[in-house]
Nucleic acid binder design. Sequence first.
DNA 1: ATAAGAGTCTCGTTTTTTGCAACCGTAGTT
DNA 2: AACTACGGTTGCAAAAAACGAGACTCTTAT
Lengths: 258, 258
Amino acid sequence: MSILSGAAAVLRLFSVERQELSVTDVARLLDMPKSSASRLLRAMLNQQLLMHAGDTPRYRVGHLIFETSRAYFGHSHLVDLVDGELLELCQATGHTGYISMLDNEDVLVLRVHLGTQPLRVVTPHGSRRKAFATSTGRSMLARLGAAQVDTLTLDHARSEKSPKTHAALEHILGEIRCKGWAEAEDEEIPGVASIAVSIADARKSELLSFCLVFPAHTIAQGERANYAARLVAAARRIAAQVDDPFWTQRHPLKIVAA
Amino acid sequence: MSILSGAAAVLRLFSVERQELSVTDVARLLDMPKSSASRLLRAMLNQQLLMHAGDTPRYRVGHLIFETSRAYFGHSHLVDLVDGELLELCQATGHTGYISMLDNEDVLVLRVHLGTQPLRVVTPHGSRRKAFATSTGRSMLARLGAAQVDTLTLDHARSEKSPKTHAALEHILGEIRCKGWAEAEDEEIPGVASIAVSIADARKSELLSFCLVFPAHTIAQGERANYAARLVAAARRIAAQVDDPFWTQRHPLKIVAA
DNA sequence: ATAAGAGTCTCGTTTTTTGCAACCGTAGTT
DNA sequence: AACTACGGTTGCAAAAAACGAGACTCTTAT
């Protein structure tokens, strides 16, 4: 195991539930000798991938991770615009919301706004999500050309509900282009439904998606139509500020849940 | 140079202005042979510290950085509450705002909201800021005990205006405890003033600060008092939700700019 | 005073990393 | 069509870093 893979493994140990790590934690969780764990954590500390947790010998995520993330996205005007709208939506509906982008064939989550309702969707940490098998992914795929869509590999979907052929996917993407929003239910996450819209700043080649996720069995079709309408309205407000023709050059749509 | 220091150096090359890197970029910027750069970037890609920029041979920041940052802070209820308030403040005033935490003796910036005014403060990327020499840092230091404050090293300040002795610092922190907000001018960043408040979620041992920064010469004292009042009001609203006794157990203060 | 556990350090060995130089693929120029 | 330039990759021997066992230190609990 190279030291870089060891460092990556350490970073993956952090989570909302595990904000600090000790030498013994790392040795145990990564099944490595204590001396190796001690040196690895010390080396990561020196590079600011980790920092000390106060005066304790425990370690926390370091400056470099936040600085890299922030330098990369902390100044995105589009992310800020979306963030403001999504925050309001999550507060109003009580559901969790995500802001994501495409990473080749996967969805990369940038921001999360947790819902406030007792029954809440929490995404498994670090899991990779295929774009074609999620509403948020499909909302962004709808902005790609057919040539790009045809190169996607449509396997490893967790649900029978995900499209299995490029023709089926193109059909769904056509619907999304028409109505402006995407939905998924019982696909990537069992028992969970989601509704997503996309937004782009063409001048900066930035394409994002934001969505609401909720337990599928608790939300009626009428309420889902309401969520879709609010997401579309939010996307339109953002689009007016960044001049996204996907929204600004389309007629107001009749919002109908499938 | 160990591969870990090389990887950290690569991550530091990213910025708002530099969202992608090629092998040649890294070789040139880090003064290393092309083969070393090629293999280093490939190794980082394999560990998801980097990802490919579409079909090009260029690299972008990878999943692991965002996942680590998000897993660590993306779910912070306190950060979300502060973020919502700060977003509104920045939109209302047009100035840049930061959300930060303490990292031992330094300030670690978590979120940035850029202002909208033409004359805007932009913090140098990756710079370390001493807590005792910034308003946002002092607002958090005001919540520490005297014993902890006395262990701080009060050197390397960029300005003569920063406190030089622990007695002087304690005096300033006493004022901050009394009025609830901190200010700085011409200290860490020449020509720039800032006003900050702190907020804590004691149940989760989370201490944050948020602030507005602006060019010092353009804002009159009366307007600064207005900013301080709005920051205090925002802190109070958050404090009511997380039960922060620093705010909820103090009388409404007369807001007076020093 | 003793035991247990967390964490550090030494040192010989092993593994990884390095950089030179050659090479490949692509694009532009003649 | 041939040549040049550039970005990026690969083989290989050498150099450097990393490894892990085991001894050690320090702290805490009994």
